[in-house]
């Protein structure tokens, strides 16, 4: 039976977290967590592989104890096993570190993995780095932004569209893919599945020590980059506001910019009789 690992992340439910300018921190308390959408697509891809070829799916995440939630959700959707990597000394890991930790966990707990699936990017940071870096850590062949996966024995055939190219690629297991949100629309979570996930399963939680990660490793594998400063991006520019009833606003705007619009669209909207705005 195929052994699949899906790496998922819990992200805030809203994409635009408010920033507390006084304390200089994000108001994470204002948004509950959810499974990162692209990760959910990756899990769906794994579930479809399982349905077609029969497979065992282990879902791994790293995060605080509350991140168990996304693992329960994964179980409800049809995953078979879970692993939560949870340790204060791992908090604040960048992608470099995260991929290294995930690699440690996979080596230790899913040694015979055939295929690792990750979301192509996360909704909260969108660096899209962890998947490729995990492949590098485990020295696996990998393809990012995958839309379709087929298996023929141990050969994986994947399709994707990147930079205006439609590509079909093949590689042999073990391998890694990051799954885009183009395809593999995640199934709805059934209520009975959720009830069962909580009833029968225990989330396996491991800490750094259990993974054989010592403080010295954290330092050595730790962040390569340092954030010097975070600031609000400037968005205000000299602009013009139109307010009022929609139809008036529209006419005011069209009257003022008729030439510009005509030029760009190559059709004249100028000089027609109409009610003049102010």
């Amino acid at each position: 039976m195929l052994k699949l690992v899906v790496c998922i992340k819990q992200v805030p439910m809203v994409t635009e977290l408010p920033w507390d300018e006084k304390t200089g921190t994000l108001r994470r308390d204002l948004a509950p967590g959810m499974m990162n959408p692209a990760c959910k697509h990756a899990l769906e891809a794994a579930l479809q592989i399982k349905e077609k070829y029969s497979a065992h799916i282990t879902v791994i995440t790293m995060g605080p104890p509350t991140a168990k939630e996304v693992l329960y959700e994964a179980l409800a959707m049809g995953a078979d096993g879970t692993l939560l990597i949870c340790d204060k000394i791992l908090a604040g890991s960048d992608t470099y570190m995260t991929s290294w930790i995930l690699a440690q966990a996979i080596r230790k707990h899913c040694a015979n993995v055939d295929l690792i699936l990750c979301g192509a990017f996360t909704a909260d940071s969108e660096t899209a780095q962890v998947g490729p870096q995990l492949a590098e850590s485990l020295n696996l062949p990998a393809v990012a932004y995958v839309e379709k996966i087929e298996m023929n024995g141990r050969i994986l055939r994947v399709r994707r569209i990147v930079d205006n190219f439609r590509e079909t690629m093949e590689m042999e297991c073990p391998a890694l893919v990051t799954v885009s949100i183009e395809n593999y629309l995640p199934r709805y979570v059934g209520l009975g599945g959720l009830q069962s996930a909580f009833g029968e399963n225990q989330i396996q939680v491991i800490d750094a020590t259990a993974l054989g990660i010592a403080a010295a490793d954290v330092k050595k594998q730790g962040s390569r980059t340092k954030v010097r400063r975070v600031f609000l991006r400037k968005t205000q520019k000299e602009n013009e506001y139109f307010t009022g009833v929609a139809v008036n606003v529209v006419n005011e705007f069209l009257n003022k910019y008729e030439r510009k619009i005509s030029t760009v669209i190559g059709k004249s909207i100028e000089g027609k009789e109409r009610t003049r705005g102010k």
């Binding site: 635009e16 977290l17 909260d124 969108e126 980059t225 954030v227 975070v230 600031f231 609000l232 991006r233």
Partner: peptide, 13 residues
């Protein structure tokens, strides 16, 4: 861009 919001971060290696 940082924190998935309207923030920018200055990062150095």
């Amino acid at each position: 861009p940082s924190f998935g919001g309207n923030m920018l971060a200055e990062i150095v290696t």
